[in-house]
């Protein structure tokens, strides 16, 4: 029932907090190597959507499939699925008591059951990939925001995920630090990583996404390749919003 290269399938995902419907029957599929960007005003359910995919938030209705296997209602197996779905957070969420290297290593040791030496090698490889091998022994508090976010990307990549979820990866960064993070993400896209990105960086989204989804009030208002959507009304509204956002 899934086409061969479909990695992720989301069907009718719905979530309410109290009486507020945050997600209203969201459906889409993600092909291998595809980059899908979600943009739209704050509070339209974009972050909730990402968290429903790896079940950090349990949706009220709807299903999520990873390689055709249902992630929703996975019970104890949910940890196995989460290990295959990398996530990068707005606030990095690095483990404060661990060095950059240990941050990347820890899930390799505890979740993947790797040996110390093997995990170390893999972690160093991932840090090199985001250009931070020389910061391996630094603690999160000793890293700039951009570096911290790159470490958190390395931490997610180390698990060799099938898909990466980026939840506003540059929103907490000073403008001069967003570039280095976007560069890392761009490189991942070029190397064929499958990614869902929630972002306010419109130009970035337009330049790397295969498909853009405009979200508003818990629905996907419009979707399509960047080129087709540049002049759509939804895009215009979002751009106005993003413009205001940037001015702030």
């Amino acid at each position: 029932m899934t086409t061969d290269d479909t990695i992720l399938r989301v069907e009718g995902l719905a979530k309410s907090f109290g009486t507020t419907e945050v997600l209203k029957e969201i459906s889409f599929t993600v092909r291998k190597g595809e980059t899908k960007a979600f943009i739209g005003p704050s509070g339209t359910g974009k972050s909730t959507l990402l968290r429903c995919i790896n079940q950090l938030i349990v949706p009220d209705r709807g299903r999520v499939y990873l390689h055709g296997e249902e992630v929703t209602h996975a019970g104890a197996k949910i940890n196995q699925y989460r290990a295959k779905i990398g996530m990068v957070f707005q606030n990095f969420n690095l483990f404060d008591h661990l060095t950059a290297l240990r941050n990347v290593e820890i899930a390799l040791l505890k979740v993947k059951g790797m040996k110390e030496g093997e995990a170390r090698e893999k972690a160093l490889f991932e840090l090199r990939r985001v250009g931070l091998e020389d910061r391996a022994d630094h603690y999160p508090a000793q890293l700039s925001g951009g570096q911290a976010q790159r470490v958190s990307i390395a931490r997610a990549l180390a698990m060799d995920p099938d898909v990466m979820l980026f939840d506003e990866p540059t929103s907490a960064l000073d403008p001069e630090l967003t570039g280095e993070v976007l560069e890392v993400i761009r490189e991942l896209a070029q190397n064929g990583m499958t990614m869902l990105i929630v972002t306010h960086e419109m130009r970035f989204a337009l330049s790397i996404a295969d498909e853009i989804c405009f979200m508003e009030h818990g629905t996907i208002l419009e979707r399509g390749p960047p080129a087709d959507l540049r002049d759509s009304p939804a895009f215009e509204r979002t751009r106005q919003f993003a413009g205001r956002f940037a001015e702030l």
Binding site: N54, L56, N79, Q80, Y81, R82, A83, K84, I85, G86, M87, F89, N91, F92, N93, L94, F95, D96, I106, A107, K110, V111, S152, R155, A156, M159
Partner: peptide, 17 residues
């Protein structure tokens, strides 16, 4: 910070881990 717990779960750790 709550986010560290979330990040651990997202990596596939159990709550206990």
């Amino acid at each position: 910070r709550e986010g560290q717990f979330t990040a651990g779960l997202a990596l596939g750790m159990t709550r206990g881990q």
